[in-house]
């Protein structure tokens, strides 16, 4: 089941609709448009596929067919802390799959999925270009080199603790309560 669009996502998609009007209706614009939408809301919800189909005057299944062909496009929202585990050759040789498994086990999701609270998502990526640090995982923007299964737990825990702390702060700072 795909999650419902949030109000924020809906308003972004409304903006996208306006932006689309500026883009020509050539077929060769299909992939750039999909990339543009994904850069705005991080994935391609069904509504967006329909928007693009309307704009280029092709069927939604045609758009979907192209989008699913390419690894870049995703169809469910990534977590606030997207985890990317490198499955490049050097990382594979040094046990990248073990790292991926540990994330999957710890977060109780499979690669390509997002946790129900939308906090984490896990995906595999090809060489991120720091093979000398293999195995590598990226969380958010930060690259973590020389990963070990035991480091996985620490990383996840750190994010969760940080979040709890923020929530407590927020409650404290909310006046009148």
């Amino acid at each position: 089941m795909l999650p419902e669009l949030t109000a924020e996502e809906k308003s972004i998609l409304d903006d996208v609709k306006t932006d689309l009007a500026e883009i020509s209706k050539e077929r060769s614009k299909l992939i750039p448009i999909l990339q543009f939408i994904q850069s705005k809301i991080n994935y391609l919800p069904q509504v967006a596929i329909n928007l693009v189909a309307d704009h280029l005057d092709i069927s939604p299944s045609e758009v979907y067919g192209v989008a699913t062909f390419y690894n870049q496009f995703r169809f469910n929202p990534p977590g606030r802390n997207p985890v990317k585990v490198c499955m490049g050759t050097a990382c594979h040789v040094r046990g990248g799959d073990i790292i991926l498994e540990n994330f999957e086990r710890k977060l109780e999701i499979k690669e390509g999925e997002t946790t129900p609270d939308r906090e984490f998502s896990v995906e595999r990526v090809a060489c991120v270009g720091c093979c000398a640090l293999a195995p590598v995982a990226i969380m958010g923007e930060t690259v973590h080199g020389h990963m070990q299964p035991s480091k996985v737990e620490g990383l996840v825990l750190r994010v969760r603790i940080e979040k709890e702390k923020q929530e407590r702060e927020k409650q404290k700072n909310e006046p009148g309560k």
Binding site: V128, G129, C130, L133, V143, G145
Partner: peptide, 8 residues
């Protein structure tokens, strides 16, 4: 470059 940034 990307590799340098990845390494910190």
């Amino acid at each position: 470059a990307t590799c340098g940034i990845a390494a910190g």
